[in-house]
């Protein structure tokens, strides 16, 4: 493990600040006043039992879902006030995502998948693929560039997803159960790669997991229970 220890309240500035988030799906309350604060470059784990609202917290914080109440500030902007075009631009340039599964496009090769956010941002194919290739080389995926997701193992697919999340040089990576579908060895490899690469790139990571071994990669953690968050004690 290479996860570093950062002091709470250190010199890093707050990058993402979610305060008093409420979200309900019909009669079911998912969030009831949850908070999440992320500083630049830190890794924050979000833990909690099933149905506690941790994924909903991540979705609200990333602007994927609008909260019913509360606010999400990112770099001086209120996310819930942004329209679809500007939130999409944020997802392309500032955020990266690694989910449990389903986020790779099966029709595209691994290289094309990694280059996709750049292509959507108007970068030429040659430049986008050059940057994607460089990143995949660094992450040990060079030999998988021409493979399609269906030809890769679960662990390899997640590593491609990590590469894609990093290719635009994001400031925050949102990872929702990134090892949930992997065995422990593959899971460890993915987490190692994700956290190392994020630290090298200076990107913050919001890591939703129910696995304490995965949460151990974080600098600090919060726990979500019944839609409310609290700072987790005992994290390095």
């Amino acid at each position: 493990m290479t996860a570093g220890v950062r002091a709470e309240g250190g010199s890093m500035s707050t990058l993402l600040d979610a305060q008093g988030l409420h979200k309900a799906y019909g009669p079911t309350t998912a969030l009831a006043g949850a908070d999440l604060r992320v500083r630049a470059g830190e890794i924050v784990s979000v833990m909690g039992p099933s149905g506690s609202g941790k994924s909903t917290l991540l979705h609200c914080a990333a602007g994927l879902t609008r909260p019913d109440a509360g606010h999400v500030g990112y770099d001086g902007q209120e996310l819930s006030m942004l329209d679809d075009v500007r939130r999409s631009a944020l997802r392309r340039r500032e955020f990266g995502f690694v989910f449990q599964f389903g986020q790779l496009v099966p029709e595209l090769t691994a290289l094309q998948n990694v280059a996709l956010p750049l292509r959507l941002d108007g970068v030429s194919r040659r430049t986008a693929e050059r940057r994607a290739t460089g990143l995949m080389d660094r992450l040990g995926l060079a030999d998988k560039a021409r493979s399609r997701p269906g030809e890769l193992s679960g662990g390899q697919q997640q590593r491609v997803a990590v590469a894609r999340a990093l290719v635009t040089g994001p400031r925050v990576i949102f990872a929702d159960e990134p090892t949930g579908a992997l065995d422990s060895v593959a899971g460890e490899q993915v987490m190692e790669m994700l956290t190392t690469a994020a630290r090298e790139a200076g990107a913050a990571v919001v890591l939703v997991t129910h696995d304490a071994r995965v949460a151990a990669y974080a600098d600090r953690g919060i726990v979500v229970r019944d839609g409310r968050s609290s700072e987790r004690m005992g994290v390095r």
């Binding site: 679809d84 075009v85 939130r87 999409s88 631009a89 996709l116 956010p117």
Partner: peptide, 16 residues
């Protein structure tokens, strides 16, 4: 539609 949702995640807006 599922494929397009994956593309939305990495930054395509609804018109794109």
């Amino acid at each position: 539609d599922r494929r397009l949702a994956a593309i939305r995640l990495v930054g395509a807006d609804s018109r794109a």
